[in-house]
């Protein structure tokens, strides 16, 4: 049995007076690759933000490696939703990746050549090195997401949280990102990913966390990814949802 690296108990959070998360409890084992799935408004992003203290919890405790978040912050990496930043910001791809190192560089210091080399290597890993000096607004959606992944890699964290890294990316990027996630897992790193595509859950994740305001079901994909749990999480809209997913498959960009 591998060791527990994240323990969430009785977590509750609200957004503008509405409860978004209620009594959330789960434990994550080291080296697992977990997909967080649930309908729109189920609180998937809020869950990640609350775990990372980007959103205030109302009740509950969150333990990383047996420590409170502040003491574990150093080893936690976060990939926000691509749409959460302004891609017209005056900066280039390499610079965005270097940002992942700002915590390590520390106050009053400039990024050194060594930092830039690390960033460049991370871009190489994502197949993006030729775009290093490209202004970020001139990258496609998939390329932007790869830059975000490179930025996470350069952080060299032990536990990664990713918010919809596969949303709206091309097939090649999706493949590249999944290869990186599997690689991270092979190093014993733990990854939690907000995911929107039920069709690929079984291929991509070894654990699934069904979320709809609270944890509907959480466990090994093989055991818990059943029609019954999907219906329980998504309610009566399952059929419609699947129809939507199929349309994604029929019309790839």
């Amino acid at each position: 049995m591998s060791k527990t690296v994240l323990k969430v108990e009785n977590l509750t959070a609200s957004y503008r007076k509405n409860y978004v998360l209620e009594d959330v409890n789960f434990e994550i084992a080291q080296g697992s690759l977990t997909g967080i799935v649930g309908p729109n408004g189920a609180g998937k992003s809020t869950l990640i933000k609350t775990l990372l203290r980007l959103h205030p919890p109302i009740t509950g405790t969150v333990d990383f490696y047996g420590l409170p978040f502040k003491d574990a912050q150093r080893v936690i990496g976060y990939v926000p939703q691509r749409g959460s930043v302004d891609w017209d910001f005056p900066t280039n791809a390499l610079d965005v990746v270097v940002m992942g190192l700002y915590g390590k560089i520390g106050w009053l210091k400039r990024p050194s050549k060594a930092h830039k080399r690390l960033a460049y290597e991370a871009l190489q890993k994502m197949g993006m090195e030729t775009y290093a000096n490209r202004q970020i607004s001139q990258l496609s959606g998939g390329q932007q997401q790869r830059v975000f992944l490179a930025r996470a890699l350069v952080q060299d964290a032990d536990f990664y949280f990713m918010d919809e890294p596969l949303a709206g990316v091309d097939a090649a990027t999706e493949k590249a990102i999944m290869a990186i996630l599997k690689e991270l897992k092979s190093y014993g790193k733990t990854v939690m990913v907000v995911h929107h595509d039920l069709q690929t859950v079984e291929d991509y994740f070894d654990h699934v966390l069904f979320l709809n305001r609270t944890v509907v079901k959480h466990g090994k994909t093989l055991q818990v990814f059943t029609k019954e749990n999907i219906t329980k999480t998504y309610g009566g809209n399952l059929r419609i949802h699947f129809a939507e997913e199929e349309s994604h498959v029929v019309h790839p960009l």
Binding site: Q73, Y78, P80, V85, V96
Partner: peptide, 10 residues
């Protein structure tokens, strides 16, 4: 550019 990442970096 990215206040969420900034916060997660401390």
């Amino acid at each position: 550019f990215d206040p969420a990442l900034a916060a997660s970096l401390g």
